[in-house]
Structure formats: structure tokens, C-alpha cells
Design a protein around this nucleic acid. Structure first.
Length: 473
RNA sequence: GCGCCCAUCGUCUAGCGGUCUAGGACGUCGCCCUUUCACGGCGAAAACAGGGGUUCGAGUCCCCUUGGGCGCGCCA
């Protein structure tokens, strides 16, 4: 089908899948879905030195976790080196490329001189029209594109608009290295063509590359795909993303307790908008996504907004799903909390029962688990500072009064315990809060928690009473 | 240095010449709800980088300045 949209996500496996790459993948995925097309995945591993298997796995895992799937087999670019070479040689035969015998040293001199004289740093084309017979012995040549030297190269970008370069500002790029392996610039063009890619959506750090690749397409006589260069994501300080702030692997966001749905929603609104809408289900994103509404200015990464969104999606999530999400994270975060790597059935049941009250109050899965610590804390409870402050002598006296009423309670239900506590407060002549806070402190060891009567229900009669006795003694 | 791109509240953004005394969201600050904290509700402070044009009219078009970003490898 000629009208079918084919996009691709083409990361280089020299590191993890970072936040910018994840958004690029998301945009490609959304665009393909929107048009009923497909997204392909290609690993750009032509740099043998820096590509690692671990990085490839991290990228695949990251995408899977984010819920982004791809069509067919993953294409490994390096495996296609023979084809790339064939194309380079074809260009050579057709006079669109030439052998260049300049050594790395010569190239470095060229750049140094250019820098000194304040000229653009470009290859000077010294072998462009030279007879290969003059080739120095023992030097393996590279193949360079014989790029046009006059006129201009135009990229009609769907995001950036019509961008024009003067050809005199672009030099003859290397297509095939002296060892016979293709450069990225060649490989991308050949692969996108061979894979039938119709739309290239990628970071705008590739905008200049788009011009050079366009020249290759033209030399080859191939039609270039539609291009869309999206602005990069910056750190909170506006500078390039560094390890210090946002340039974490996508797995780090998982570890921090964010939900894939929240991250997708956060990411889709970074650079793209749909009127005033902030919340998008995956279906809504797919339905509304378009290239025209992608902004041209870079965005800063903002954890506060991600957290807010994450809280939103956690409140929306079914309790069972949240328990499972926590369980999935437990190998990482359980041991430090004395929980091991999986939940005991009894604790799991309590966590599930307490979830409605818990999820209302947490912004991440980590916070969620921590806020549930009263469920798995052992007696006598360690009181935090605020809880200690609440449990002064007066408070403990009041605690004793409620305790007697609770001990004689027939039905241990939220309604029952609430009635008892209210009665005790009335009897003591204090507001409910003065009775409730000491209870909370004794029951959870903290000054904040879900609704008290829910806490007591989940904890159960015996555990609740025992915790209260611990603090009245 | 050269090339290219960008510029609305602290942040993400709406705005596509007149309806903008610039809207929404996050964050911040009040108030309400309330057994705490959240949630929720109500409200507030908060922006068109600067200068020139074009036009009857400019946040919206053009130019310059300033400020950011990206690229300039036999890396991708």
C-alpha cells in the first residue's frame, strides 16, 4: 500500500534509553498508530566500538515497559553493511562519489587551520577531482559523496518548516570508511529507503544531518521520506540534559515509582499540545496526535508535573494493579524496607485492603509503599518525631479512655470504631481531632495516614488494640 | 568562528492580525471541606525578551539586537 505510514525509531545502542529518546519513540509510535501504519525499530550499531548488547536490551526493555511496541524484527544496522557498501560503490560508479585518500592527520590539520583562520571547518575537497592514480601508496581511501557545491539544499520539515542550506556550506561527507564499513549518514539513508520508511520523526539535533542525507537521497535518485525534527528536551535549568538531572535511563523512572501511563502522558505534552487538554488516555493520544501541533521550542523537564500526573494515574488505577506494580518493584525496593523481594500473602491482603485510602495520598509507588509501612511495621511501633510530639501525657490519658471503649466493642467495623471514638471524645469533652491524632500516632507511628477507622479495620482488632496498649502503658 | 533552529506566567503550553484588560495545567500562596495528610472546591499572585518596521489594528507578519539550543568526525 503506497499510502501506508511507516515510521521508525532508530536509537544507537551506546547507552540506555533516555527520556528524549523515549519521547521520540512515543511520537513515532503515536503517529504510526494514528494513521493505521506501523513503527519499525532499528538499532544503529554501526559504531562497533561503542555499541553494546546490554544497551540494546535496555532500550528494548524500556520501550516494552513504556508500552511501545514495534512491527516485525528489530533491524540491526550493522548486519546490513554489505548492502550499504554496495550503494556506496554504486554511487562511485555513477560519478556521484569519489575515493578520498586524505589521512586523519591531514583532516586534523585542515580543521586546525580553518579554526585559526576563522573559516567554517569543512573538508576542502582535495580529492574530489583528483586522479586516483595519484593515490599515495598504503593509504586506504574512504568514499566521499560528491556533493553539489552551488545552489541550495532544502528540507521541508513538518515541524521546523522549510529549512534551507547553501550547498557551499556543506562539505563532501564520508559514506564509506576506509575499512569498508558504512558511516551513519549512508546507513540511515539506505535503511530508511529499504525499510520503506515514509516519515522520519527524530530529535532536531539531526536537523543538519537531514540536509546531508537529503543530498545522498538526491545523488541516489531516491525520494526522501517526510521529515519532522522535534525540539530536544532540556534539564530544569534549561541546559542540555545531563546525568545530574533528566538524562536518566527510562528504567530509572520505573525505579522511582512512576507508572508508564503517567510517563506517556507527561511526555506527549512535552512539545505537543491539543488545545487545553492535559490528560490523555492512550486512545485519546492516538486519536489526537499530529505533527502540526508539535512546537518548535525546546521544553524543560519538570519532575513536579510528572509527579502530579503520576498521582492522577495512581488514583485512577485499580487497587490490584497497584499492588502488582509494587510487587514488580519489590526486588529493588523491598529489601531496604525489610520486606524481601515478594509480599507475604497476609501482608498482600492488607495492602490490597488499605489501597483505596493509600493511593489517594501518594505520588509515586515508592511513596505508596512507604505510606503503607504501618501495615508491615512490627510492635512496638517506632514513632516518628511528629507522632512522638502528639503523644504527650494528656494524649496518652485520652488514649486510655478510647482504648477502654474500643476493647468493649462488639463489632470491629469502621462504623463501630468511629462511634466509639466519637463517644470517647464527647465524654472527654474534646474535639474529635484531639482524640484522633493520638490514635493515629499510636496506630501508625506517624502524624498522617489514611482515614483512622479504615486503618483500624485493615489492622484488625487485635493488632490495633495491642498497638494502643503499647502507648498507654 | 561558521551554519541552522528557537524565544508567551517559575515550568509545560493555548493563541494561527481585531473576540487578549492573553486562556488552561503543574508549582506557589490564601480560603473551604475535614480525625491527619492527601483528594476535591473556590480564589490570588504570576508571562507576550528588547528595539525597529508593516498595518486602521500585532502576542500573532518582517528586520535587527539580546539570550538559549543544536550541528560542524573515517560518532550516531
Amino acid at each position: 500500500m503506497s499510502g501506508t505510514v511507516v515510521t521508525r525509531f532508530a536509537p544507537s545502542p551506546t547507552g540506555f534509553l533516555h527520556i528524549g529518546g523515549a519521547r521520540t519513540a512515543l511520537f513515532n509510535w503515536l503517529f504510526a498508530r494514528h494513521h493505521g501504519g506501523k513503527m519499525l525499530l532499528r538499532i544503529e550499531d554501526t559504531d562497533r566500538e561503542r555499541s553494546t548488547e546490554a544497551a540494546i536490551q535496555a532500550i528494548l526493555d524500556g520501550m516494552t515497559w513504556l508500552g511501545l511496541d514495534w512491527e516485525g524484527e528489530v533491524v540491526h544496522q550493522f548486519a546490513r553493511a554489505a548492502r550499504h557498501r554496495e550503494v556506496a560503490e554504486e554511487l562511485l560508479r555513477r560519478g556521484k562519489a569519489y575515493y578520498c585518500y586524505a589521512t586523519p592527520e591531514e583532516l586534523e590539520e585542515m580543521r586546525a587551520l580553518a579554526r585559526k583562520e576563522g573559516r567554517p571547518m569543512r573538508y576542502d575537497g582535495r580529492w574530489r577531482d583528483r586522479d586516483p592514480a595519484e593515490a599515495p601508496a598504503g593509504v586506504k581511501p574512504v568514499i566521499r559523496l560528491k556533493a553539489p557545491q552551488t545552489g541550495e539544499t532544502v528540507v521541508d520539515d513538518q515541524v521546523q518548516g522549510r529549512v534551507t542550506w547553501q550547498n557551499k556550506d556543506l562539505d563532501d561527507l564520508v559514506l564509506l570508511r576506509s575499512d569498508g564499513t558504512p558511516t551513519y549518514m549512508l546507513a540511515v539513508v539506505v535503511d530508511d529507503h529499504d525499510m520503506g520508511v515514509t516519515h522520519i520523526i527524530r530529535g532536531d539535533d539531526h536537523l543538519t544531518n537531514a540536509a546531508r542525507q537529503t543530498q545522498i537521497y538526491e545523488a541516489l535518485g531516491w525520494a526522501a521520506p517526510v521529515m519532522a525534527h522535534i525540539p530536544l528536551i532540556h534539564g530544569p535549568d534549561g541546559a542540555k540534559l545531563s546525568k545530574r538531572h533528566g538524562a536518566l535511563g527510562i528504567d530509572a523512572y520505573r525505579s522511582m515509582g512512576y507508572l508508564p501511563a503517567a510517563l506517556r502522558n507527561y511526555l506527549v505534552r512535552l512539545g505537543w499540545s491539543h488545545g487545553d487538554q492535559e490528560i490523555f488516555s492512550t486512545e485519546e493520544m492516538i486519536a489526537a496526535f499530529n505533527l502540526a501541533s508539535i512546537g518548535r521550542s525546546p521544553a524543560r523537564f519538570d519532575f513536579a508535573k510528572l509527579e502530579n500526573l503520576n498521582g492522577h494515574y495512581m488514583r485512577l488505577a485499580p487497587d490490584e494493579e497497584l499492588v502488582r506494580a509494587i510487587e514488580a518493584l519489590l526486588p529493588e525496593i523491598g529489601p531496604a524496607r525489610g520486606l524481601g523481594t515478594s509480599l507475604e500473602p497476609a501482608l498482600r491482603a492488607k495492602l490490597l485492603a488499605a489501597m483505596p485510602g493509600l493511593k489517594e495520598r501518594a505520588k509515586t509507588l515508592i511513596e505508596l509503599l512507604d505510606s503503607a509501612s504501618y501495615l508491615y511495621a512490627s510492635r512496638p511501633l517506632q514513632l516518628d518525631e511528629k507522632a512522638r510530639g502528639i503523644l504527650d501525657d494528656d494524649a496518652r490519658t485520652r488514649l486510655g479512655q478510647v482504648l477502654r471503649r474500643l476493647e468493649s466493642l462488639d463489632a470491629w467495623t469502621p462504623a463501630g470504631t468511629e462511634a466509639a471514638v466519637r463517644a470517647a471524645a464527647e465524654e472527654a469533652g474534646v474535639k474529635l481531632g484531639l482524640m484522633a491524632q493520638p490514635l493515629r500516632a499510636a496506630l501508625t507511628g506517624r502524624s498522617t495516614s489514611p482515614g483512622l477507622f479504615d486503618v483500624m479495620e485493615v489492622l484488625g482488632r487485635e493488632e490495633s488494640l495491642a498497638r494502643l496498649r503499647d502507648q498507654t502503658r
